[in-house]
């Protein structure tokens, strides 16, 4: 871990100002991913701005009938919130399927969205990785890539986004509220937040340098049967091979997003439109442009079968 200076910010504005002063700074909240990566010198901030004192840790109703979730709400608290459990069950389920009790107690809503990939080549600094060292190449292509992306990847990167929560947020059409270093605020849809790797897999989100997530808002509840199905080798404390977040309405319409298959939560309007026709039709659309490797081709039938199982459960 490289030496860094450290300060605590007292308000979002103060945090933004601090970030403006120190462009090489990183915000730290839960720290469960950032410190992991700093120890391996994959992340090397020269300055840390501790945002835990920003009082962004409440969940409040919005005027539109949704919920505004403070960026610092811990994963445990978000999953356990009565309104979330009642109206956004897919989000509770996704959070509870992720990590461990200890990690969920620290990890924050914003930090969870900004998790970096768990690609083992990204984690090994001896290996080429375009995400870690742009232009060095992608060791996962042609290597061990059973966990990797099957769709939306590029010649430069086949990493997946590891979050469960983000997949549920995607199917719930969440929005991200931010403040930029100069103080301007904006709202970004979850669909737009994460980027596909393209030629610049090191650029993972549309956030600008020093831009701070302050909240995530959920639109008013859409009801339906809300399911999150995470498929993994071990029964807990493991990242998804494939996960399915789905909301199914009594008339068979609905929405679905997949985790573990792409560089971002994977959801397509064309696939949602196929929901009444069942898993095969939906998967056909989701994977229309899939380019799996020899090791991860199983994710295609796996996702379809997991979705079929979710739809069957939703029908009761």
């Amino acid at each position: 871990m490289k030496p860094f200076t450290y300060e605590r910010a007292g308000s979002p504005a103060e945090a933004a100002a601090a970030a403006a002063r120190r462009p090489e700074a990183k915000f730290i909240a839960g720290g469960t991913n950032l410190l992991d990566l700093m120890k391996l010198q994959i992340e090397t901030p020269a300055h840390l701005i501790d945002v835990n004192g920003l009082k962004l840790d409440t969940i409040e109703p919005t005027q539109e009938g949704g919920l505004r979730i403070g960026a610092l709400v811990r994963n445990t608290d978000l999953a356990a919130d009565e309104r979330v459990r009642r109206d956004y069950g897919v989000l509770s389920r996704a959070l509870l399927a992720g990590a461990s009790g200890q990690l969920r107690n620290r990890a924050t809503t914003a930090g969870n969205l900004l998790q970096r990939t768990r690609c083992p080549y990204f984690y090994d600094t001896n290996m080429a990785c375009n995400k870690r060292r742009p232009g060095s190449g992608c060791s996962a292509i042609g290597g061990i890539n059973r966990q990797h992306a099957v769709v939306g990847a590029s010649e430069a990167c086949i990493a997946t986004h590891p979050s469960d929560m983000a997949v549920a947020m995607r199917v719930l059409d969440a929005s991200i509220e931010t403040v930029k270093p100069q103080g301007a605020t904006r709202t970004i849809s979850i669909a737009e937040l994460h980027r596909l790797p393209g030629d610049t897999p090191n650029v993972e989100t549309v956030l600008e340098a020093g831009e701070l997530i302050t909240a995530v808002t959920l639109p008013r509840p859409v009801g339906g049967s809300q399911q999150y199905r995470k498929v993994r080798d071990r029964a807990s404390y493991a990242f998804a091979l494939v996960s399915v977040a789905a909301i199914v309405q009594p008339d068979g319409s609905g929405r679905v997003a997949l985790g573990g298959v792409a560089h971002k939560p994977w959801r397509l309007d064309a696939a949602d439109a196929e929901m009444p026709r069942g898993a095969k039709a939906v998967a056909g659309k989701l994977f229309a442009d899939a380019k799996p490797t020899e090791h991860n081709a199983f994710k295609l039938p796996l996702a379809e079968r997991a979705l079929a199982s979710v739809l069957a459960d939703a029908r009761g």
């Binding site: 450290y6 839960g30 720290g31 469960t32 835990n52 200890q102 990690l103 107690n105 620290r106």
Partner: peptide, 13 residues
């Protein structure tokens, strides 16, 4: 009162 992984947090926090 809440359990955490003490390896993934800084003491100064």
């Amino acid at each position: 009162g809440r359990r955490i992984n003490s390896c993934l947090t800084l003491a100064v926090m």
